[in-house]
């Protein structure tokens, strides 16, 4: 069985992004953010779990995952910011919006929100330079309208 912390981050993200949720499950989202912040490997594991959910073809599941990501970016600390600011994670977001990868099938609202969030991070987190690099590349490819 997965080690305890792995199980609880996995179970929390499953609950927070469950497509059957009638509305946003803020308790699970808060629990996920707190949990990832309090573990040595938390940010790395959390970004892997989030990337998988964001790439879901189910729009409501993916949108809830983006809400979890947005909440954690506001409430979690530097370690999470620097994990999100790595190409290892940014590449997973790029796959969602790029027609070369999942972009042709990904739901429009999900792609729109990914681009909006990436842009907001280039403004709020200027020292996470890889985010700006990734966003610039999306502009060059015309995925972001000038």
């Amino acid at each position: 069985a997965a080690p305890p912390d792995e199980a609880s981050l996995q179970s929390r993200i499953n609950k927070a992004t469950n497509p059957l949720n009638k509305e946003t499950d803020w308790d699970s989202i808060k629990g996920f953010c707190d949990q990832l912040d309090n573990e040595p490997e938390g940010p790395q594991l959390a970004t892997r779990l989030l990337a998988h959910k964001i790439q879901s073809p189910q729009e409501w599941e993916a949108m809830q995952a983006l809400t979890v990501l947005e909440t954690c970016m506001k409430n979690c600390g530097k370690r999470f910011h620097s994990e999100v600011g790595k190409f290892r994670f940014l590449n997973e977001l790029i796959k969602v919006v790029s027609p070369k990868y999942l972009g042709a099938r990904a739901p429009e609202p999900v792609k729109k929100k990914v681009l909006e969030m990436m842009y907001s991070w280039t403004v709020r987190l200027p020292n996470e330079t890889k985010i700006a690099d990734a966003y610039q590349m999306l502009k060059k490819q015309g995925i972001v309208k000038q």
Partner: peptide
């Protein structure tokens, strides 16, 4: 104190 594992390894930007 808590063991702070900091890993700076990363991938290249997906083109």
């Amino acid at each position: 104190g808590k063991i702070e594992f900091h890993d700076d390894s990363d991938e290249d930007l997906l083109e």
